[in-house]
Amino acid sequence: MAFGAFSSGAAPGVATVQEGPRRKSRVALFLLLPGIAYLALFFLVPLISLLLTSFMAPREFGDIGQFDYAFRWENYVKVVETYLPHILRSFGYAAIATVLALIIGYPLAYFIGVNLRRFPLVQALALVLVIAPFFISFLLRTLAWKQIFADEGPVVGALNALSLMGPGDHITGTPAAVVFGLTYMFIPFMTLPIYTSLERLDLRYVEAGGDLYASPWTTFRTVTLPLSMPGVVSGTLLTFIPASGDYINASRDFLGSTETAMIGNVVETNFLILQNYPAAAALSIILMATILILVGAYVRKSGTEDLV
């Protein structure tokens, strides 16, 4: 421990000085205790429980939903065999939504963080507008989109009238609607971290880029974008992780259909309807592990750790 190393390096004669850091570290531990206890209780325990559940076996001669602790790793093989399309679809939708949110969020963040710098009041207002959707429950917002895109709704009506859509076509229930919903939902999560990076961007670097023969686009690619990478990385993580586990947008009750079900929907079905707890738990573990691997690779690749 850092504190230990510090106190052992102190001169042996000054006992009172050695006392200081050690007591400090005890105080620090004491202050951390509630947080550690909270994490242990509400994160570690459920996680272990989930892990144990994922290996359960059905009780012999038991009812539906009755399981015994076991080590049935076949559960994992089974769910991957059964739900591979859903797993792939989850990450596919999440990836597309992340890219779309980045394409929309970055220019928005740039505009607010750089172009609006000279007008602090307008900048503050623009930020409030980005956060404004949070004032309404996102279930309600998604329901509103469902209304808008419904077969009797204005969008379908207009497209029908323009003959851009046939009478049998729908918007809701399609992958496009689900990806749209995900993108819409996570735009603020993408915009805010990028805004934080760009707001602090020293424009003199951009001037220096121009001075050194870089066109505006090249300056953006070689100076602005790398300097805003921390924001881009946190924005994409804040979007991709919850988006891959999302089960509202893809649900049949909202913008999706059975064809668009994602892992979240499958977990929900297994838990609440089929009462196949081990399958649901195994799917959750797979989702978590895959996200962990993907995110780890991504953070490593984008090299944010050696950004200033």
């Binding site: 003199r204 220096a208 001075d211 100076v223 200033v308």
Partner: peptide, 11 residues
Amino acid sequence: TVFQSYALFPH
């Protein structure tokens, strides 16, 4: 230009 703040790219 050699800028007053140098403006060396930090990354």
